[in-house]
Simulated scan of single mutants.
Amino acid sequence: MELVTPGIGLIFWQVVTFLIVLFLLSKFAWKPIMQALNERENSIEEALRSAEKAKLEMQSLKADNEKLLAEARLERDKILTEANEAGNNMIEAARQKANEEGARMIVQAREAIENEKQAAITEVKNMAASLSLEIAEQILRRELSDKNAQQALAQDYIREVTLN
C-alpha cells in the first residue's frame, strides 16, 4: 500500500521542488515564453489582417478590372458601330454621287443629242433650201432662156398679182 499512498516527506519535497521550479520558471522563463507567445499571436493576427486586406484589394482590383473590361467592350462596340455607320454613309454618299453624276451625264447626253439633232435639222433645211434654189434657178434658166417664155411668165405673174 505504500505505493498507493506516498509518504509525507516525499510529498513535502515534491511540493518544494515544484514551488522552486515554478518560481524559477516564473522568474526567468515565464515572461519570455509569454512574450514569445504574444509576439507569435500578434504576428499571426497581423498576417491574418494582411491576408484579409490583400483579399479585399484583390476583390477591388478584380472589380476594377471587370469594370475596365466592360468599358473597353462598350467602347469597342461604339467604335465598331461608328465605323459601320461611317462606312455605310460613305457608300451611300458614293452611290448618291454616282447616281447624280449618271443623271447629269444622261441630261448632258440628251442635250448633246438634241443639239446635234437641231444642227442636223438645220443643215438639212439649209441643204434643202440650197437645193431648192439651185433647182429653181435651173428651172428658171431653162424657162427664161426663151424670150417668149419670159414674156409668158411675166404675164402670169402680173395676172396673179392683180388677182390677189
Rank of each mutant, 00 (worst) to 15 (best):
E66V: 06
L61T: 04
E45R: 12
E52T: 07
L140H: 10
W13C: 07
N148F: 04
A83V: 12
I20Q: 00
K53M: 04
D77M: 10
L56E: 08
E39I: 02
L56Q: 12
A109Q: 08
I121S: 00
K125Y: 06
M127Q: 11
T162I: 14
L140C: 07
D146S: 10
K117S: 07
I44V: 14
Q14V: 14
F23G: 03
N99D: 15
E116K: 09
P32K: 00
A149S: 10
I44K: 02
I91D: 00
F23K: 02
E101N: 09
K147M: 03
G9W: 09
M34E: 06
N126H: 07
L131S: 06
I20C: 01
R141D: 12
M90W: 11
M105S: 08
A152V: 15
I44G: 00
N148I: 13
A36V: 12
M1A: 13
E123F: 02
K67M: 03
Q108L: 11
Q150V: 15
K147S: 07
N164S: 14
I121A: 01
I113N: 02
Q35W: 08
I33D: 00
A94R: 14
N38R: 13
Q150L: 13
N88H: 11
L163T: 14
I91P: 01
A120E: 07
N126I: 08
K53L: 08
E143D: 08
N42T: 13
N99M: 12
E134F: 09
M58R: 11
F28C: 03
Q14A: 13
A72P: 00
V107L: 04
G7F: 12
L24H: 04
V4N: 01
E100V: 12
I158R: 05
E160D: 10
M58H: 10
A149I: 08
A128I: 11
G9Y: 09
Q59W: 04
T122G: 01
G102V: 12
A72Y: 09
Q14N: 09
N88R: 15
F23H: 03
W30P: 00
E160F: 13
Q96R: 12
A93W: 12
Y157C: 09
G87D: 04
A112C: 01
E82H: 02
A119E: 10
N126M: 05
L131A: 03
Q151H: 07
A154D: 02
Q150N: 03
R95C: 02
A129R: 08
N65D: 04
A136W: 03
R142I: 08
M34Q: 09
V107R: 04
K62A: 07
L74A: 09
